[in-house]
Simulated scan of single mutants.
Amino acid sequence: MRLYGLKTCDTCRKALKSLPDAEFVDVRAQGVPAEVLARAFARFGDTLLNTRSTTWRGLDAAERARPALDLLADHPTLMKRPLIENGAEMYLGWTPQTQASLGIV
């Protein structure tokens, strides 16, 4: 299991604490592999983009109009977090649904 997020993100830290065996990938330092981003975008679509983030607010209209995968490749902190990859399954966010799917009570 891999958890993609930011080491400074409180939600990512909560998820990692509940999933101690997960491999943590800091998207700011290590980025997200293109194939993982493509799979996540195919699964979650535009909800993969965090349009409430500071990074998003700092982009001009021309940048925001770019394709989501291009934006995420250039600015991995725009991804909603955490993105959890568990085999063939992917989960976005640390919601009660995600926790239930992963067997966290």
Score class of each variant (00 low, 15 high):
R28P: 07
Y4V: 02
K80D: 04
E35I: 00
L48S: 08
T95N: 13
A15E: 05
A15F: 06
G93Y: 04
R57E: 10
L102M: 14
Y91P: 05
G58D: 09
A29N: 11
L3N: 01
P96L: 11
G93I: 05
D74C: 12
T54A: 15
E23G: 03
R43D: 09
Q99H: 03
G103N: 12
W56P: 00
T98P: 07
L19F: 13
V25L: 00
M90S: 09
P33A: 15
I84P: 02
A15D: 05
G87P: 01
C12F: 11
P82E: 03
L83E: 03
R64V: 09
G31S: 13
L72D: 04
M90F: 11
R2E: 06
N50V: 12
D26M: 05
A22F: 14
P76D: 07
D26K: 05
L69N: 10
H75E: 12
P76Q: 10
L37F: 03
A29D: 14
T47Q: 12
A40D: 06
T8M: 10
A29T: 13
E35D: 03
N86E: 14
K7P: 08
E63H: 00
W56E: 01
C9L: 10
A68S: 04
G93V: 04
L83F: 06
S101N: 11
Y4D: 04
R39Y: 07
L16T: 02
D10L: 00
P20C: 12
P33D: 14
L69M: 09
I84G: 01
S18M: 12
G45H: 02
P76S: 11
L48N: 07
D74K: 12
R66P: 04
V25Q: 01
D74F: 10
Q30H: 13
R2N: 07
L78R: 00
A40E: 06
L59T: 04
T8F: 08
S101F: 01
V32E: 09
Y4W: 06
A38E: 15
A73F: 09
L83M: 08
K80T: 05
K7C: 11
D10T: 01
L16V: 05
R66H: 11
A38T: 15
D46C: 07
A40R: 04
L71N: 01
Q30I: 09
K17G: 13
V27N: 01
C12I: 10
A29H: 08
P82S: 03
T11V: 06
A15K: 05
V32R: 07
T95G: 09
R2F: 08
A62V: 07
E23V: 06
T98A: 15
P82Y: 00
H75I: 09
P82W: 00
A42M: 10
A22Q: 08
H75R: 14
L49G: 02
A42N: 11
Q97R: 13
K14S: 15
D21K: 14
T54G: 14
G93S: 08
G45C: 01
R52F: 11
R57I: 06
D46A: 15
Q97P: 05
R39L: 10
G93C: 06
K17C: 07
Y4F: 15
A65I: 03
A65H: 04
P96A: 13
L49M: 07
E35L: 00
Y91M: 09
D10E: 02
